[in-house]
Design a binder for these strands. Structure first.
Length: 191
DNA sequence: AGGAAGATCTACT
DNA sequence: GTAGATCTTCCTA
């Protein structure tokens, strides 16, 4: 039985957490179904030193979770889509990891109903796409992903893969560091 | 009331 | 592959 990842897992550098979240299982509990996908692409975001971060302009109502307990879902809107992040940072720091893509493993029929697409690989290969397919919205903001009882949980997994990294996508002013991580050769990574 | 957004889709070359 | 429109949600005034 693979356990949910603990709070301690998220109480580290955002880039470290982003890299290590690859290959883990994202589980979504709905009324009548159970959805699951393997995390295949992530990005790390920081605080006041990161112009691309939601936290860059200081603490606001909508972004204050980035200052709070690691291991909680942090969800915000971009255009017409929801972005799913997990709060991740060292003690008294700021940060989060954006989940950019997953590989669907369970409840694929339900995902397809939530987000009808022709091609299998396009079901969850983008941050706005996977939230649609997994029925993730603002109502899950602040939910701990560390609890087995949560509507959304991230659990450990044991799989082997090669990790790739690059600069973040769609970011106007990116940092020097490469903060996007993905599973090499995985077909569900976004373009 | 107005505008911006860490994206996506569509309609093309 | 790439440009342009999108018409939601929540912020800031």
């Amino acid at each position: 039985m693979l356990e949910p990842l603990s709070e301690r897992f998220y109480e580290r550098e955002p880039a470290v957490v982003a890299r290590e979240l690859l290959g883990k299982r994202l589980m979504r509990r709905l009324e009548n179904s159970f959805l699951e996908g393997i995390i295949v692409e992530t990005e790390a975001y920081y605080g006041s030193a990161d112009p691309a971060s939601r936290a860059y302009h200081g603490i606001k109502d909508y972004n204050r979770l980035m200052w709070k307990e690691p291991g909680r879902a942090f969800i915000y809107n971009v255009h017409k889509y929801w972005m799913f992040n997990v709060v991740a940072h060292k003690l008294n720091k700021i940060g989060a990891v954006l989940i950019r893509a997953v590989e669907p493993t369970k409840g694929i029929d339900v995902m397809k109903r939530n987000r009808p697409v022709m091609k299998r690989f396009e079901l969850t290969n983008g941050p706005g796409k996977l939230t649609k397919a997994l029925a993730i919205d603002k109502s899950l903001n602040g939910v701990p992903v560390t609890s087995r009882e949560s509507k959304i949980t991230i659990a450990d997994n044991k799989i082997k893969f090669e990790t790739g990294s690059s600069h973040r996508i769609g970011v106007k002013k990116d940092l020097e560091r490469k903060l996007r991580f993905y599973i090499k050769d995985n077909k569900f990574v976004s373009k």
